[in-house]
């Protein structure tokens, strides 16, 4: 965990430094609070960094940098979600969600095709019925907007 703690500390220091420097653009009365807490964030990140450099073992798990396959899997899921979001307004919620559910279930290792189909169709239809017809949320239906 020590290596990842050091990396995370540095990320927090960068975030704190950015918010601190950016706050100079604000009028003085409104910049005091973000400046103060940006400094606190940097100090806490330095604290974690020093603690990690000392080699103090505080964490429950020993998890370190993500494995390449795990990172790749996370990237694929996020990529699928970005594509889903970009197409949501064009293709519509019901069709896209069905594809997303089936795709994610298959990708995460669910291989029973009949059950996979039932879960995808059942969940999507149920969610659509609850939100669109019972809770009256104007869900974007894209190509199905005239039908649903």
């Amino acid at each position: 965990m020590s290596k990842i703690n050091k990396i995370i500390s540095l990320i927090f220091i960068v975030i704190g430094a950015f918010t601190f420097l950016w706050s100079f653009r604000f009028p003085e009365a409104t910049s005091a609070w973000p400046k103060f807490f940006s400094i606190i964030l940097i100090l806490l990140a330095v604290g974690l960094l020093v603690d990690s450099l000392k080699g103090t073992k505080r964490d429950e798990s020993e998890e370190d940098l993500p494995s390449l396959s795990e990172f790749g899997m996370f990237a694929v899921i996020i990529g699928a979600l970005i594509v889903y979001m970009l197409l949501l307004n064009i293709i519509g919620f019901t069709i896209l969600s069905l594809l997303l559910l089936a795709g994610l279930l298959w990708y995460t290792g669910y291989r029973n095709v009949i059950k996979l189909g039932c879960i995808s169709v059942g969940s999507t239809v149920l969610i659509t019925v609850i939100f669109q017809f019972l809770l009256r949320v104007p869900i974007p239906q894209g190509v199905l907007s005239n039908l649903l």
């Binding site: 889903y84 919620f93 969600s97 994610l104 879960i119 969940s123 969610i127």
Partner: peptide, 10 residues
Amino acid sequence: GPIILLLSIV
């Protein structure tokens, strides 16, 4: 997992 994700989106 995927069902929770879909519920989170909607």
